[in-house]
Simulated scan of single mutants.
Amino acid sequence: MGKDKNQNNQNNPSSDSLDLYVAKLAFVGASIATLGDGLTAVAAGIALEALEKKEQSNNNSPQSQNGQSKQLEKMQKQIDDLINELNQVKKMFRW
């Protein structure tokens, strides 16, 4: 019996490599989903900013425009950081 089990493992090495491939694929999928969630949060922030800007359109003081500009720059940096992370994940898993 033990001999049959040992022979079965020797005859099926691709099962281990398949399991490794599946695990890597699951990791990539989870990473992409996490980055997608981050992009969704950034998009929600941009939408919120747009609604606030629309509501405050009567208040066009230079201070509020400067603050909005800084917030938009911060959001753009967050988007850029998420894109860079996604590119790093893609580089890790190129075969």
Rank of each mutant, 00 (worst) to 15 (best):
M92A: 05
G45D: 15
V89S: 07
N9D: 06
N11M: 06
N6W: 02
Q63D: 13
T34H: 12
Q63L: 15
D81S: 03
K70S: 06
D4M: 03
Q63S: 14
Q78N: 03
K74I: 01
A44T: 13
A41T: 12
N6L: 07
A41I: 06
K3Q: 10
D37G: 13
V42N: 09
A41Y: 01
E85N: 08
S15H: 07
N84R: 11
N8K: 11
K54L: 07
W95A: 03
L72P: 02
V89K: 12
N87V: 06
D37S: 13
S61F: 01
Q76V: 10
S61G: 07
D4K: 03
L20H: 07
G67W: 14
L86R: 11
P13D: 00
S61Q: 06
Q63H: 14
P62M: 00
R94N: 10
S17D: 05
D37R: 15
G29D: 09
L20K: 13
L18K: 13
I79C: 07
G29T: 12
K24H: 13
N84H: 05
K70T: 03
N58P: 00
A41E: 09
A26M: 12
E73D: 14
Q88G: 03
K74Q: 10
K90C: 01
V89G: 04
K91T: 05
N6T: 08
E52A: 09
D80A: 06
A43N: 04
A47M: 07
A30L: 04
Q76E: 14
N66I: 06
E49M: 09
Q65K: 15
R94S: 07
L48C: 03
G67Y: 15
T40D: 13
L18Q: 14
N58G: 13
D80G: 02
S69T: 13
S15R: 10
F27M: 13
V22A: 15
G45L: 06
V42M: 02
T40G: 14
N59V: 02
Y21R: 12
I79S: 10
A26C: 07
M75Q: 13
L18H: 11
L72V: 09
M75P: 00
P62V: 00
A47Y: 06
M1W: 02
S57Y: 02
I83N: 12
A50F: 03
G45W: 02
E49H: 06
K3V: 09
S31W: 01
M75H: 11
V42D: 04
D16G: 09
I79Y: 10
M1H: 05
Q78E: 05
L72Q: 14
L35E: 15
Q65A: 11
N59E: 08
Q78W: 00
Q56P: 00
K54Y: 04
Q71M: 08
S17W: 05
N8Y: 12
G29P: 02
K90A: 06
D81K: 07
Q76G: 10
D80W: 01
V28D: 03
